[in-house]
Computed example of a mutant assay.
Amino acid sequence: MQLKIENISFRYNDKSPWILKDINMKIESGERVGIIAPSGYGKSTLAKIIAGYENPTCGKILIDGKEINKNGFCPVQMIHQHPELSVNPRWKMEKVLNECWNPDDKMLEKLGIEKEWLKRWPAELSGGELQRFCIARVLSPDTKFLICDEITTMLDVISQAQIWKALIEIADEKDYGMLIITHNMHLAERICTRIIDLRDINRRV
């Protein structure tokens, strides 16, 4: 399966500068593609467009040559940098987890999610614990590609290592394609199968 980003451009209005211009790339199933660039260069905007959170000014996102259906579950799922902003604070974690699908015990164990956490509120968990839930809830059987936008930047080193180890094992097992957005070149070199510098493909200037 192939995810294709075709001539994607984005700006907020006709008078504003281009944030992204004529972006083209392909991600195959099983690939882990790193996207690096300085802050303010459009990495997160590109991630939101690919995952369907933002509409491009022009261009298309295709899976196996077809545009993604906007109705129903999106096969491209995004994991955000700030898990506390990605969950409903009024829901207990069991409801948060089951928002998209019902992960089994094997999945929870692999991601280090303890059963007792399911009865807690989001505010009662650490950032690393919350991020494990945010990852688990997007790994449904219908997911084909993952967009990871600085997903461990705010976490301690041990949590970072544990989360990436589990996520890569699951992605390899399920043959997910992954787009990993990071400013950390050391991390990209360790976990990605190839790396793209957004400055090399962004024609905004």
Rank of each mutant, 00 (worst) to 15 (best):
K115S: 14
L108P: 07
K95H: 13
L97T: 03
G72T: 08
E114M: 12
L97R: 05
T143I: 13
I35K: 12
T45N: 00
W117N: 08
P83E: 04
I63A: 06
F73V: 11
V76E: 02
S126C: 09
T153G: 14
L62A: 03
K66D: 04
V96L: 03
K92T: 08
C58V: 00
G128M: 06
E28C: 08
M78H: 08
F145S: 07
L139A: 03
S126E: 12
Q81V: 02
D105W: 08
S140G: 09
M154V: 04
R137L: 09
Q131C: 05
G128V: 07
M78R: 07
G65E: 01
G52V: 03
S29I: 05
E114P: 01
G34W: 09
N55H: 12
P89N: 10
P103H: 02
E28R: 14
F73L: 10
L108Y: 06
L118E: 08
P122N: 02
S29L: 00
N55C: 03
C148H: 05
I49A: 11
P122D: 08
H80Y: 15
S39F: 01
P83N: 03
L85H: 15
P103F: 10
G65Q: 01
Q81E: 05
I49C: 07
C58K: 15
H82L: 06
E99A: 11
I68R: 02
P122G: 04
M154P: 01
I27Y: 12
K70I: 09
K115W: 13
P141L: 08
L97M: 12
N98G: 00
E84T: 00
S140E: 08
L85C: 04
R137Y: 11
L85P: 06
I151T: 12
I63Q: 01
A37S: 15
M107Q: 01
F73C: 00
E150A: 13
I63L: 14
K119H: 11
G128H: 01
A47M: 04
I49R: 12
T153V: 10
I36Q: 00
A123F: 15
L111G: 09
I49S: 07
I151A: 02
C134I: 06
C100F: 15
S86D: 15
K70F: 05
T57H: 00
T153K: 13
G52K: 00
V138K: 14
M93D: 09
T57E: 07
A136E: 02
W121L: 14
E150H: 13
I27T: 12
N55S: 14
